[in-house]
Design a protein around this nucleic acid. Structure first.
Lengths: 172, 172
DNA sequence: GGGAAACATTTTAGGCTTAAAACAATTTGG
DNA sequence: CCAAATTGTTTTAAGCCTAAAATGTTTCCC
C-alpha cells in the first residue's frame, strides 16, 4: 500500500530523520465539500421527487438508466452503471415490476441473464418526471456560469480518473 | 415554483409564441458527474474502513463530528452537520454507545437534550482510523495539482451556495 | 466429454436511511 | 399564568444498501 509510505517525507540521506507526516488537510477539505454538495443536491432532488411524483430517488435513477436503453439492459449492466450492489438491483427491480413500470424476462440465449425494460407506463411516467427533474437541476446549479460548468466538468473528470486509478491500484 | 416557468423562454410580447424549452443538458451532465465522483470515492472509503478497521462509514462520520467537539454535541447538532435525519442519528448513537465508543447523557439545563461525546476508547480508535483515512483521500485525489484543488474548492463553494439558495427558495 | 473456473443473479443478515407521527420539555405571547 | 407554538428526541413503517454466501448457468480447456 504505497499511500502510507508516501505520507512520510523521504529520508534526507544521512543527516535527517523522518519528517513530519505530510499535510493532506486540503484534500480532506475538498472531499468534505464535494460530499456536502452532493448530499445537499441529492436530498433536494429526493424530496422533490417524493413530493411531486411520490417516487423514490433510486427508482428514478434506475428508470433513467433504462430510458437510455430501448432494448433493455441486464441486471449486471444496471448494477455497474448505477454503481450499486447486485442484490440492491434485484430488490429495486422487483418493486418496479410489481408496480408495472418494468418488464423483466430471461434472456433466450443465456438463461442466467435477466433483461429488463421500461413498460409503456414506465417510460411515460419517467419522461414526465425527467422533464421536471431537469429544471430542478438547472435551478440548483443556476448561479454557475457556463464557464463554471465547463471548468467543473473538466476538474471532476480529472478527479474521477484519479480516484479510479487509485481504486484500481488497490484491487489488481 | 419559479423553476418551471423559467424553463420556458419569455413571450416576445405580441409577435412570438412560446420558444422551445431551454436545454439544461450541460447542468444535468455536471450533476451526474458530481454524483459519480462522490459515489466512487465514498464506496472506496467505505470498503477500506470495513476491511481495515471493521467499521462502517456512517459510524466513522459520526465520530469525526464528535472529534471536533471536545465538549460534546447534541443529537440535533450532529443531525444537521451530517445532513441526515434525526431518527438516523438516534440509531447510530445507540450502536456506538453499545460498543463503548460514545458517552451519552441528558443535558442538565434542558431535559429534552441529549449530549454525546467520544469516550477515551472512541477517541483513540477514531484518531487511529482518521490518520489512515487522510492518506486514502490524498491518494484518491492524488492526480490533482494544488491549483486544481484550489479551483475545485472555489467552484464547489459556488455550487453549494447556489444549491442552498435554490433549496431555500422552495421552503420559506 | 467433463470438471473447473467464471459469470449472473438471488438470498441472507445486518445495518442505514427517510418521512411522518408521537412524545416530552421548553418557550412564547396573550 | 397558561395555552399554543416550538424544539429535541424517539418511534414506526417502509424501503434502500452492502458484503458474503448460495444457486444456477455457461464457458474454458484438457
Amino acid at each position: 500500500m504505497p499511500a502510507v509510505s508516501d505520507c512520510i517525507e523521504m529520508l534526507d540521506s544521512e543527516t535527517k530523520a523522518v519528517e513530519t507526516p505530510e499535510d493532506h488537510a486540503e484534500e480532506l477539505r475538498l472531499w468534505l465539500r464535494l460530499l456536502t454538495c452532493t448530499t445537499l443536491i441529492e436530498g433536494e432532488v429526493r424530496g422533490r421527487l417524493r413530493q411531486r411524483f411520490d417516487v423514490t430517488l433510486p427508482r428514478f435513477d434506475l428508470m433513467a438508466q433504462l430510458d437510455k436503453a430501448p432494448d433493455g439492459m441486464t441486471l449486471s449492466d444496471v448494477s455497474k452503471r448505477m454503481m450499486v450492489s447486485n442484490g440492491n438491483v434485484t430488490g429495486l427491480v422487483e418493486r418496479l415490476v410489481e408496480s408495472g413500470h418494468l418488464d423483466r424476462r430471461t434472456s433466450e440465449t443465456d438463461r442466467r441473464v435477466q433483461v429488463i425494460r421500461l413498460t409503456k407506463l414506465g417510460r411515460a411516467e419517467f419522461r414526465r418526471m425527467a422533464a421536471e427533474h431537469e429544471t430542478w437541476i438547472a435551478d440548483l446549479f443556476g448561479d454557475l456560469t457556463p464557464k463554471d460548468v465547463r471548468e467543473l466538468m473538466r476538474l471532476l473528470a480529472k478527479t474521477k480518473a484519479s480516484a479510479q486509478k487509485s481504486a484500481a491500484a488497490r484491487r489488481p
